[in-house]
Write a protein that binds this DNA or RNA. Structure first.
Lengths: 351, 351
DNA sequence: TTGTATGCGTTATCAT
DNA sequence: ATGATAACGCATACAA
C-alpha cells in the first residue's frame, strides 16, 4: 500500500495514518531525528540524557514500539524460527514444540508452527515456505524421501533435524536411539519369558519406524529362539484400537507398539474384550508420554526426553545462528530408557 | 544493515549479496522492471505473455520467491496470527492450537505460538508483544484480571477471546458453558445416588474454574440434600495425584475434577492406593481429552469440542480481518456434553 | 553527540 | 502494457 504524496510532507516528516505510531512521529514530537529515536530505543551509543529523556517520554506517551516487520527487513532477521511437525495432535511433537518454544523464548525468539498432516506429500514445500518467514527451521520427523530431504535441508539452513538421521550431512541432528530402544523392549519381554512377540509398526514413511524395525531384526538375529512378527498398524490411538484382532489372532504373548498412542488404543480395546493385561498379554509402548503412567495398567515403555529434543534443537539452532560456519558434531543420540510398569509381566501368568 | 555504496550500482540494479535472490535481480536478468516482475509474481494485471514467460523462467531458474518480510512491510499484513495460551503442555490448549492452525493454514495464514507458563504475571505484556508480529491474536484462557484484559483486548485487536468471557466487550468470544457443564456432572452423580460430592478446583485465576464453581453453587441451591465441598487442587496431572488424601479423607463418594488431567492423576493414585473406582468412589473429569476414554476405568467427563474452539476462533478472526468494523454477535457458547463412561457408578456399590 | 542519507525487498501509483 | 518512483518503518554508515 502506497500513500499518495498529495500532502507534500517530506519523508522525514511522514506521519502515521493508521493507529500505529511510527518512529517518525516520535521523532517529530520529540524534535529530534529518527536516527536518534532509533538509537534511544535500542540503547545504542551514548545519546544526550536530555534528548534521550525527551524521546522516551514521547515514546511512552504515544505507546510507541518499533515495528517488528520493518525491523526485520532492516536487520535481516525476524527473531522467529519455524517448527515443522508431521502431526500437531501427537503428544510427542507437542512436547518438542513445548520444549523448543520455551528455550527459544528465553532467547527472545518466537516459534512459527507448521503441521504437515493435511498434506504430507507437500512436506518439503511446507518446510521451505515456512523457512522464508523465519531465521531458521526445526525439522521434526520429516517423512519425505531422502533425496528430497537433502535438498530441503540445503534450502532451509540454518536448520536442525530432529528425530531423523541423514548420513553425510553437516546439519545438526538430534535423534533417538530407536535401535537400542526397541532391542531393550524386546529383551525386557524375553526376560519375562515371552517367546512370541508382535511388533505393531508405525507409518511406513517414518524413519523412526524403520529404525525400530532394524533394531528388531538385529535383536532377532541374536535370539533365534524367539518368534517375532510385525504387522502394519500406524501411529495413532485408533490404529492401536483397531489392531486388537490381529494381535489376538497372532498368538503372541508380548506386543510392542510403535508408540504409546498405539499402545493406549490397544489397551483400551483389550480391556473391552476382556483380555487381561499383563496376565494374558503383555503390552509395551514407546515414548513415555505423560499419560503412559496413568494408563490402566500403567504402560511399560521406552522413555524419550521429548521436550529435551525441542530444547536442544533450539540450542543447536542458536549456535548455528551465532556461528554460521560451524559444522555439526555428528548426530546427538538420545538413548531411551526402559520404564517398567504394569502392562508387561511374566509370560503365561494367567490364561 | 546498510551496504556500502562502494559499488555504484543504481537502486534498480541492486544485486543480492547473500544467497537470496531479490526481485531486482530477477528484473535485471529478465530485462524488465521490478514492477513487472511483481505483477507477474502476483498474477496481476494483464502483462504481455512474452514478458511474463521470460520473468517466470528467470524466477524459476533463480529459485526466486518474494521476501515475506518485505511483502509484509509493503502490504501492511503478515499473514500470521498469534495464539497465546497459558500452558502448551495442556492437551486442551494443544487441541485449540491444532484446530486453529489447521483452519488458518487453509486460508494461507500461519500461527505464531506464545506460552505464558513461564511468566504468568507477564501475560498481558506477552499478548501485546506477540500481536506486534502478526495481524491478529487469539487469546486463549487468559488468566489476567479483568481491567487488564480490557486493555489488552483493546491493544491487540483484531482479537478473539477463547475460553473466557468479558461482559460488555465487542470482542468475538468463544466460550464453553461451564456453568451448565458442571451442573450436568453433579446431576449425573446425584442420579447415581451420590449425596456427598467433592470438587477439586482449578487454578484460582482461571475464569473457567470460577464458572464451574458458580455452576456448582447454583446447583447446590437446588439440591440442599446434597453435600458439596470444594478443595483447591490445580490443573495438572500431578495436582490430581497429590489430592488423593484430601479426597479419601473427605468422605465424598463422588469426585468432580477440574479437568481430565486432574482426574487422570487422581485415578492413578487411587489405583495405587487400592481404591476401587467406581465401586468405592466415582470420579468425573472435564474436557474429554483424547485419552479420557482410554483411562482405566475409562473416564466419565464433560466433552468440550477443543479443536473446534480453535477452528472457530480462526473463523471469527478471519471475518474480523475482512470486515474490521463488524461488531461481535455476543459470546458463542459451546455446550459440553456428558460422556458417561466407567469411572462413575452407583453410590455404595462396593465398600 | 546528532542529523542526513541510504538501504532492506516489495507493492502500488502514476505517467507513458 | 510497462517503467520509474514513492512508500512501508526501521537501522546505520558517514558527515558534521
Amino acid at each position: 500500500m502506497v500513500r499518495t504524496a498529495s500532502d507534500h510532507i517530506p519523508r522525514a516528516g511522514t506521519v502515521s495514518t493508521d493507529g500505529v505510531t511510527t518512529i517518525a512521529e516520535v521523532a517529530r514530537q520529540a524534535k529530534v531525528s529518527r536516527a536518534t529515536v532509533s538509537r534511544v530505543m535500542n540503547g545504542h551509543a551514548t545519546v544526550d540524557p536530555e534528548l534521550a529523556g525527551r524521546v522516551r517520554e514521547v515514546a511512552a506517551r504515544l505507546h510507541y514500539s518499533p515495528s517488528r516487520v520493518a525491523r526485520s527487513l532492516s536487520l535481516g532477521r525476524t527473531q522467529t524460527v519455524g517448527l515443522l511437525v508431521p502431526d500437531l495432535g501427537n503428544p510427542m511433537f507437542q512436547q518438542v514444540l513445548r520444549g523448543a518454544n520455551q528455550a527459544a523464548r528465553r532467547s527472545g525468539y518466537r516459534i512459527l508452527v507448521a503441521d504437515s498432516i493435511e498434506e504430507p506429500q507437500r512436506e518439503a514445500e511446507l518446510a521451505i515456505e515456512a523457512r522464508r518467514q523465519c531465521d531458521a527451521l526445526i525439522l521434526c520427523s520429516p517423512r519425505m524421501p531422502e533425496p528430497e530431504l537433502v535438498q530441503v535441508l540445503d534450502a532451509t539452513r540454518p536448520v536442525v533435524l530432529v528425530n531423523r538421521e541423514l548420513t553425510g550431512s553437516d546439519v545438526p541432528t538430534l535423534t533417538v536411539d530407536y535401535v537400542h530402544g526397541i532391542r531393550a523392549v524386546a529383551q525386557h519381554l524375553l526376560d519375562l519369558g515371552h517367546r512370541t512377540l508382535l511388533y505393531l509398526t508405525g507409518p511406513a514413511e517414518s524413519a523412526s519406524n524403520a529404525a525400530r524395525l532394524a533394531g528388531l531384526r538385529q535383536w532377532q538375529a541374536d535370539h533365534p529362539e524367539v518368534k517375532i512378527e510385525d504387522v502394519p498398524c500406524g501411529s495413532m490411538i485408533e490404529d492401536g484400537y483397531r489392531a486388537v484382532d490381529v494381535v489376538l489372532d497372532s498368538g503372541a504373548t508380548g506386543v510392542i507398539a510403535f508408540n504409546d498412542l498405539v499402545a493406549f488404543g490397544l489397551l483400551g480395546k483389550l480391556d473391552e474384550a476382556g483380555v487381561n493385561v499383563p496376565g494374558d498379554l503383555s503390552v509395551a509402548g514407546f515414548d513415555d508420554i505423560d499419560f503412559a503412567r496413568y494408563a490402566r495398567p500403567s504402560l511399560t515403555t521406552m522413555s524419550v526426553p521429548q521436550a529435551d529434543l525441542g530444547r536442544q534443537a533450539w540450542d543447536q539452532l542458536q549456535a548455528l545462528l551465532q556461528f554460521p560456519g560451524q559444522t555439526a558434531p555428528g548426530p546427538t543420540y538420545f538413548r531411551p530408557r526402559l520404564v517398567q510398569r504394569a502392562s508387561t509381566g511374566p509370560a503365561g501368568s494367567t490364561s
